[in-house]
């Protein structure tokens, strides 16, 4: 299978004196949904910022379809969509204008835009709010707008940061269904989350970050096997790592 994202020996963070990430390496292939799991401050958001090309790696490199952001920024960005943890919207644009601008920025034709946006608006029950401004949106609705903007462009790589908080149950289910769909169409999705039960159910693989390093990564079965309990949930394993009971890792 072809590799979409490769992170090799990444060390990075906000200041060289205090790097947040230490030698992080992983790969994502087409059609994979990977869960990025870790405590607050473990380095999830920093990893995401490096992948988005918002931070410069201190060491190592990140490639999306074989290219680094330095080599061709526009082509690099063209291949990914990002759903941030805190929704950021244009306060001066309506919902529909958000979608249109995304479509235009990612070179979509009008017909494709009409089809996809109609489907997304219906999926998230926002058809009636097309002409609304973000001021009138709740946190959950703002999150839905971000999700719609990302899934409208159907890139090869999705970076989704803690998407479930504030979403209503229909929103959560629609998002999960969308991610399944995109996966089957060959997209790679990196999702950071604290909702472990959902992650366990939907993700193909997991990366457990702890204090800026990858504590363990792999399928849930592989992780269980190493943990030595074939019935352990992701929750149990994650707590063990977070509480420092990690002798089984060595």
């Amino acid at each position: 299978m072809n590799t979409i994202l490769s992170v090799e020996h990444l060390s990075g963070g906000y200041s060289h004196q205090r790097p947040v990430l230490h030698d992080v390496s992983f790969e994502m292939k087409a059609g994979e949904l990977v869960g990025l799991v870790g405590l607050n401050g473990a380095g999830k958001s920093t990893t995401i910022k490096h992948i988005l090309g918002l931070l410069d790696p201190f060491e190592g490199e990140i490639r999306v379809k074989g290219r680094t952001v330095k080599e061709d920024k526009l082509a690099y960005r063209q291949k990914m969509a990002y759903v941030p943890e805190m929704p950021e919207l244009y306060e001066q644009l309506t919902l529909e204008e958000h979608l249109k601008l995304s479509a235009m920025a990612y070179h979509m034709d009008r017909k494709t835009y009409e089809e996809r946006s109609a489907r997304l608006l219906e999926l998230f029950h926002m058809e009636k709010k097309r002409h609304w401004f973000p001021t009138h949106f709740s946190k959950g609705m703002r999150q839905k707008v971000m999700i719609m903007c990302a899934f409208l462009i159907q890139p090869e790589l999705y970076i989704v940061d803690e998407p479930f908080v504030g979403l209503d149950p229909i929103g959560i289910q629609s998002l999960l269904d969308l991610m399944e769909d995109m996966k089957h169409q060959g997209a790679a999705i990196l999702m950071s989350t604290h909702i472990l039960s959902t992650a366990e159910q939907y993700c193909d693989r997991f990366i457990i970050l702890h204090e800026g390093k990858i504590a363990i990564q792999g399928t849930i079965e592989a992780i269980r096997q190493r943990y030595g309990d074939s019935k352990a949930s992701l929750h149990d394993i994650y707590l063990a790592v977070a509480r420092g009971r990690a002798e089984w890792l060595n």
């Binding site: 988005l52 082509a75 960005r77 990914m80 244009y90 958000h98 990612y106 903007c149």
Partner: peptide
């Protein structure tokens, strides 16, 4: 200011 998660990510020169 435009939102980083949208305008900041647009692949536009």
């Amino acid at each position: 200011p435009f939102p980083q998660a949208l305008a900041g990510m647009y692949p536009i020169a």
